[in-house]
Simulated scan of single mutants.
Amino acid sequence: MTVWDRPEPPTQPVPLARGRIVAAAIALADEGGLEAVSVRKVAARLDAGPMRLYRYISSKEELFDLMVDEVQAEILPEEQPGDWREALRVLAQRTRKAALRHAWLADLLGGRPVMGPNGLAVAEATLSAFDSLTDIDTVMRAVEMVNAYSIGAIRRETANLRAERVTGLSKHDWQRAHGPHMTSMLATGRFPALSRVVYDGTDVDAQTSFTIGLDWVLDAVAAKLTGPSA
């Protein structure tokens, strides 16, 4: 039986509910990452004994599932775009924004799907965007490809942001610090392709990079689809 199927325990003298437990866990994760979340720390945040929480959740992994499902509500758009391409673009962009608000989310994306109500609603919104446009196997591969790109790009961006917080160096500070070494290595002539990237490539911000890459992936999906909407 999943956590969403189990009824909550009767009200105790000090009010406690899964919603309060999840909110406290998300607050801790927003402050210090997933390593800051434990049943003991969540219980302390709620001024409750740890054993009381085990009446609502069976493990930390189950708590993580609840946290992800709660944040999925932030990803679901209020209105479903009519066009499949716009629908997938909106969902991907909203996933990125949710991960920037909750940096820990990137570490929990891409594994087994969370079967909570919000996660299922996001999955339904994603799949229904195609609305019989093509066969279901093609739809599944298309969704997998878009998700793989989005999750990979989001993880890279959040990892860079985490590195900035840990080191205190911004992207440009880091580049300046490593500039002399890179210049000397490129001067050897051993890395011509890398030299072109460093000296001739256009540096774009993370939002622009994500959007361009997403559009390229959606172009590839469109090439595989049939029908006038593609």
Rank of each mutant, 00 (worst) to 15 (best):
F210H: 14
R96T: 10
A123W: 13
T208K: 14
T126I: 02
V146D: 08
S132E: 12
L34P: 00
T134N: 05
A153K: 11
I154E: 07
L218Q: 11
W84K: 07
M67N: 06
T226K: 14
P7H: 10
G33W: 06
G49C: 07
A142I: 07
D131Y: 09
V146H: 09
D215K: 09
G189A: 04
A23T: 13
I154V: 15
G213N: 02
G32K: 07
S58L: 12
E35Q: 12
V114H: 14
L28W: 10
A103I: 06
I57E: 04
R141G: 01
W84D: 03
E144Y: 12
D219Q: 10
A17P: 00
D203G: 00
I75G: 07
L34E: 00
E62K: 05
T183K: 13
W174H: 09
E124Q: 14
A163N: 04
L66H: 13
Y56L: 12
R6T: 14
Y199S: 11
D30R: 09
L100I: 09
D83R: 14
T11M: 12
R40M: 05
R112L: 13
G110H: 03
S170Q: 02
G189T: 06
M140W: 09
V221E: 06
A125Q: 09
A23I: 02
I75P: 05
A27R: 11
A223C: 00
L66N: 01
S59D: 12
P15R: 12
D215T: 12
R155E: 13
K97R: 15
E8W: 05
V22Q: 03
L225C: 12
V198H: 11
R155I: 02
P13T: 08
G189Y: 02
V3S: 13
Q12K: 14
S170C: 03
L16V: 06
E164D: 04
A129H: 04
M185F: 08
A193Q: 11
P117E: 12
I151G: 03
L225F: 08
I151C: 03
L127I: 05
T188Y: 03
V37F: 03
R45I: 00
Y54I: 01
T158P: 05
T2V: 11
V122L: 12
V14L: 09
I75D: 08
P113A: 06
M182S: 04
W174E: 04
D173S: 10
F210K: 09
Q80Y: 02
T126S: 14
V71L: 15
P113L: 03
A222S: 13
E157N: 08
K97S: 14
G179T: 00
P77G: 06
L133K: 01
G168E: 01
D65F: 06
A48H: 15
L194T: 11
G49Q: 15
D47T: 09
